[in-house]
């Protein structure tokens, strides 16, 4: 943000010296917020306009007021929270399972030359398969219950976590490992005090990608075969021709995605400070 004044040349604020300088920064920030809100507001106005002029039939373009009302109803009846809790539990288990497996696999690939020689080519090949392509086969073997959802989502988490763990460990500079040898660290000590801090940003990157992939795959699986969860709410709204439910589910999915992203970013900044402390 400090480079702003350079790139924009003479700022109008600077041209108005009568304003107290300490007000300038908050005002500018408010201005940025206001600018960012313009487009959503314009879209909202367009939505309202389209509803009034019936660009699309009312049944497939629900009025904003109706969406708002449904959101309230679904929230207070607890239905939305139930669906969300189920979806989040699926994501949680999958991140745990797929992330754990990815961590192990990635560490094996990163630490052992033999593991790399045997496993890496297969892994790289399979990693290029789109996750949704696996789902029909998984349905054949696992049925359509929780096992399917957790397996499919775990698979989506496994790939980025493995790739990033592997990359993070391979990327550790040799001198750092040599230091460990000099100190005669045991294997757990090396892992904990050298490998983990050094590979942490990459590991975290993997986790972040994994969580985002999990959220993506969750919605797919729930749309395809489910009887509960936030994705199913969309299927349900569609079957009833109550599109406001679909929009509510979309907004919820977006909000959760945003919350996950913010939480991961916050965790990343915390991690960075922990890392500085560890060295």
């Amino acid at each position: 943000m400090t480079s702003l004044s350079n790139t924009l040349g003479p700022l109008p604020l600077a041209a108005a010296p009568s304003w107290p300088a300490r007000l300038a920064a908050p005002l500018r920030r408010a201005g940025h917020w206001a600018a960012g809100l313009l487009l959503p507001l314009a879209l909202f106005a367009l939505w309202q306009y389209a509803v009034r002029h019936q660009w699309l039939a009312e049944q497939i373009l629900p009025p904003p007021a109706l969406v708002w009302q449904s959101l309230g109803e679904l929230w207070y009846s607890g239905e939305l929270r139930d669906h969300l809790a189920i979806s989040l539990a699926r994501v949680g288990w999958s991140v745990l399972l797929g992330g754990g497996a990815g961590l192990v696999l990635g560490a094996a690939l990163g630490l052992s030359r033999t593991a790399r020689a045997y496993l890496l080519p297969s892994f790289e090949l399979v990693a290029q398969f789109p996750v949704v392509g696996w789902v029909p086969l998984l349905i054949v073997f696992l049925g359509i219950d929780e096992a399917l959802k957790v397996a499919a989502i775990s698979l989506a988490v496994l790939v980025p976590v493995t790739v990033n763990t592997h990359r993070g460990i391979v990327g550790i500079p040799r001198p750092l490992l040599d230091v460990g040898r000099v100190y005669r660290f045991t294997v757990p000590q090396t892992l904990w005090r050298v490998v983990l801090p050094a590979a942490a940003p990459s590991l975290f990157n993997g986790l972040r990608q994994g969580v985002m992939q999990a959220w993506l795959t969750l919605v797919f699986v729930e749309l395809l075969a489910s009887s509960e969860g936030i994705g199913y709410l969309m299927v349900w709204g569609r079957q009833l021709l109550q599109l406001d439910l679909v929009v509510v589910a979309m907004l919820t999915i977006g909000a959760v995605g945003l919350a996950l992203d913010l939480a991961l970013r916050w965790a990343e900044s915390r991690l960075a400070s922990w890392r500085r402390g560890a060295f």
């Binding site: 507001l41 314009a42 106005a45 367009l46 309202q48 306009y49 009034r52 002029h53 019936q54």
Partner: peptide, 11 residues
């Protein structure tokens, strides 16, 4: 724009 959207009569 928002005001127009709210006021305009349906076709």
């Amino acid at each position: 724009g928002a005001a127009i959207a709210a006021e305009a009569p349906p076709p």
